[in-house]
Nucleic acid binder design. Structure first.
Length: 496
RNA sequence: GGUCCCAUCGUCUAGAGGCCUAGGACAUGGCCCUCUCAAGGCUAAAGCACGGGUUCGAAUCCCGUUGGGACCGCCA
């Protein structure tokens, strides 16, 4: 059979690799998508899903990708100025190239125009009810007294509102839906509220005191930008129902929508942007790129490659099921890319000095990579450093090998004494002696930062040339060389 | 309480009535390879939430139960 139809066998094997990733799209026109974050903190792993999924589709179907900053809340989820840049940087890092960048806070006037039209059409009204009052009316399916006000009167109130004649909480603009709608989430929702806190962007500052809420801003923008497909988290499913009222009043066509379920990551649990912000201010984290954080900046600094993160996100597909995943899969993806290229070095954490009796100074020749070739030379004196873990586990009389150097035998444990017993590999091959790593006395001082804390020790020379690269510390794990100053190296732990 | 959504190995996911004896990836166990406790190769164990229908035939369609989630904010 192999002889008769080798191509059939090849085909069978190919079929074994099923297609994973995003479902195909059925398009009947051009594709325009947007990724719309609130820049109130740096992009996180959650943002990465949005960036990757949207950019993947626009790449695949030659569509247009827009990044839109939904920064219309200067108070509660106050935007962070640096975050605008961070989003653009991280998009680029992830291989997403938005053709257009839109900042909502620059376009408030456009939203006001639509609001005015809606009021004139009788689709929106200024409501002076307090929050609690309106809630109880709404829950009872009852209209508030302002609901039936004439458009003319509403326009007057609206003008007064945007001119700053009311206090915060005093008035809002509501979209008229169906006050008896069976879903309470849909009933006459708020489109604009008064916020007197200035916007952090200098260009905007205190120019406006009436700000749209996401449902309104997003609804108008998606129309203005010509969005044809929206993909977002399913927490925004109800949002669509609310926004459709605006589209109906205005005679617009609502984009197609798709949603993904809630994502939780085992390793991070429930960290909110505001919670992290507070913890950073209190010094619990070193910054937004602290290796313990789920931000893209942190992931990047740890040496996860964008290709790995992209594949990880795409493999999740687009289910509406809530998922709870482990970063192990991301690490495995990353390892597949990194293992073939990362050079190997010795790193001894919790170092213990070991004098090897009868040894001659020697230059060890170790492969830079197990298969790719290339050698590194490590000059060893008669004293070396090994990790405390290894030192503690030695037994009297044990024979073992210092990797790529020579064999030793333990003479005694207290005090720890070892002696040179040759260089023959048979010790490993026949006696199955174990192999431990080591580092010469004049090694570089190395600190490794990981999510589980710091590791301090010494690493062999050569790694200082790998700045910003991911290398493997043998018997330790992959690590990204983050900084080198003099004889000191700081590395970020990537994964095992 | 109201509205809506979801349900396949431990974890993600493929599957859109017969190709399913349910496939893959990660994690786990074993063996091989290896001067790293890595990677690689082979292999093992592991799943259609439950109960009813519809059908010649259901993981796939319908109903119910159970379980999970989202929304009901002048947050996004």
């Amino acid at each position: 059979m192999n002889k008769l139809a080798p191509e059939l066998i090849a085909e069978l094997k190919e079929k074994k690799e099923p297609e994973k990733g995003l479902p195909p799209l059925e398009l009947n026109g051009p594709l325009v998508m947007r990724f719309a974050p609130n820049p109130n903190g740096p992009p996180t792993l959650g943002s990465a899903r949005g960036i990757v999924v949207n950019s993947e589709y626009t790449k695949k179907y030659k569509g247009k990708l827009i990044i839109r900053f939904d920064d219309t809340d200067p108070a509660t989820k106050r935007p962070m100025l640096e975050a605008y840049t961070w989003y653009l940087e991280d998009c680029e890092w992830l291989g997403a190239k938005p053709e257009e960048v839109v900042i909502a806070s620059d376009r408030i006037d456009k939203y006001y125009e639509v609001a005015e039209q809606l009021i004139k059409k009788g689709g929106a009204y200024v409501c002076f009810c307090g929050q609690e009052v309106f809630k109880s009316l709404k829950d009872a399916k009852k209209a508030c007294p302002h609901r039936d006000e004439k458009p003319q009167k509403n326009i007057e109130s609206w003008k007064k509102m945007i001119e700053g004649n009311y206090k915060e909480q005093e008035a809002v603009l509501r979209i008229k839906t169906d006050i008896a709608h069976k879903d309470p989430a849909i009933r006459d929702w708020v489109a604009f509220r008064i916020i007197k806190t200035p916007h952090p962007r200098q260009e905007v500052n205190d120019k406006y005191c009436v700000w749209p809420l996401l449902d309104f801003e997003g609804a108008v923008e998606d129309h203005l930008l010509g969005t044809t497909l929206i993909i977002r988290g399913k927490d925004l499913i109800d949002s669509e129902k609310r926004q459709r009222y605006v589209y109906k009043y205005m005679g617009w066509t609502y984009p197609e929508t798709m949603h993904w379920g809630r994502v939780q990551i085992h390793e991070f649990g429930k960290l909110s942007t505001s919670g992290i912000k507070k913890a950073i201010a209190e010094g619990q984290y070193t910054g937004w790129d602290d290796p313990r954080l789920p931000t893209i900046r942190a992931i990047k600094r740890r040496g996860i490659l964008p290709e790995a993160l992209r594949k990880f996100m795409l493999d999740l597909g687009l289910g509406e099921t809530d998922i709870s995943l482990s970063l192990d899969t991301l690490y495995a993806e990353n390892r597949k890319i990194i293992d073939p290229i990362a050079n190997r070095y010795f790193f001894v954490w919790d170092p213990v000095e070991l004098e090897v009796e009868d040894a001659e100074p020697k230059i060890a020749k170790a492969p830079l990579h197990p298969t790719r070739g290339g050698l590194r030379e490590i000059p060893a004196g008669t004293k070396v450093l090994i990790t405390k873990n290894d030192a503690d586990s030695l037994k009297e009389g044990e024979r073992l090998r210092l990797k790529d150097l020579y064999n030793i035998e333990v003479i005694s444990i207290l005090p720890l004494r070892v002696k040179f017993i040759g260089t023959d590999m048979d010790l490993v091959k026949k006696e199955k002696a174990r192999i431990i790593h080591w580092v010469p006395l004049d090694a570089l001082k190395v600190k490794v930062l990981s999510a589980d804390g710091e590791f301090n020790g010494f690493g062999e020379r050569g790694m200082e040339k790998e700045l910003d690269k991911v290398v493997q510390f043998e018997r330790f794990g992959f690590v990204r060389i983050d900084s080198v100053s003099g004889d000191e190296v700081v590395a970020y732990f990537t994964h095992k």
